[in-house]
Amino acid sequence: MDVQAIMIGSGALAGVGAISAVVLAIASRVFKVDEDPRIEAINEILPGANCGGCGFPGCSGFAKAIVEGMADPTGCAPGGNDLAKKIAVILGVEVQEKARMVARVRCSGTSEHCANRFVYEGVASCKGASLLSEGGIKSCPYGCDGLGDCVAVCPFDAIHMGPNQIPVVDLDKCTACGKCVDACPKGVIALEAHAGQVVLHCHTHLAAKDVRKICSIGCISCKACIRACPYDALSWDVDLPVFDYEKCQSCGLCIDACKPGCIQTFKEIDLAVKAKATEALEAKKAEEAAKREAARAAAQARAAAAAAAAAEKPN
């Protein structure tokens, strides 16, 4: 074996490599790009989950966008208000506190309530099922198919499949990053205020008569919940009731009023709050009745006055 040839060969290669290394080292000094030190500082305090909930490619992309003024310091849902305050200190700006949000599974139609349209034995993914057949497995096109795309996508282990194949969100772990919202092909999950305890577990946009046919726990647009609320916390938006959690006292009267039972609560209803609310509702009803009475009396008086005026007028 020619040792000399090996020496020359490896020597030549090592020499060229060393020269390239020196040139690159010099170039990295000469062409150094100074980055804003705040980007690094913000990047360090971000959660580092790279969930993408802020809409930027990972936490470092978000840090860069904040410093460049492209993103709001409150944009990181997992970090919450504490993080926003820390970022504000680094940037030297004030931030407004943001209400904490949480992912809500807006369907409670298990297969007992809302029948499957067919026996699905395909790939265990909601997306797969909805690609295979438009509208998914459930007879309701807005219903949860229960194959757990949201469970699989959650980076915080905050959503689990419940016993009846409807996912359940862990309210403490959920950071409202919105990954499950994007993952659900039927738009069942949405971000809502964390403060809300009484929640509408349905988001069907079908007409009431169609809902009655296919689902025993879907909203039938009866609006009984709105009439039952003593605090005006519920309003009607196109085809579903909407909660205003600044007004809602979690009294649970709407739960009792809801005939299909799609309004539910996460906690036990406080009976004292409920009793107070019942009183308030009765007072409100009495007030409304009095108003109606007064309005009727006024209308009658007006009619009588008009009739009297007509009689007096000479022909």
């Binding site: 030549a12 290669l13 060229v16 490599g17 390239s20 290394a21 040139v23 690159l24 170039a27 990295s28 062409f31 790009v33």
Partner: peptide, 18 residues
């Protein structure tokens, strides 16, 4: 050897463009 030189060269170009 060519792979080595080309790799170094591309690194260099990258720094310059950045």
């Amino acid at each position: 050897l060519f792979i080595l030189v080309i790799a170094a060269l591309v690194q260099f170009v990258e720094m310059v463009i950045k």
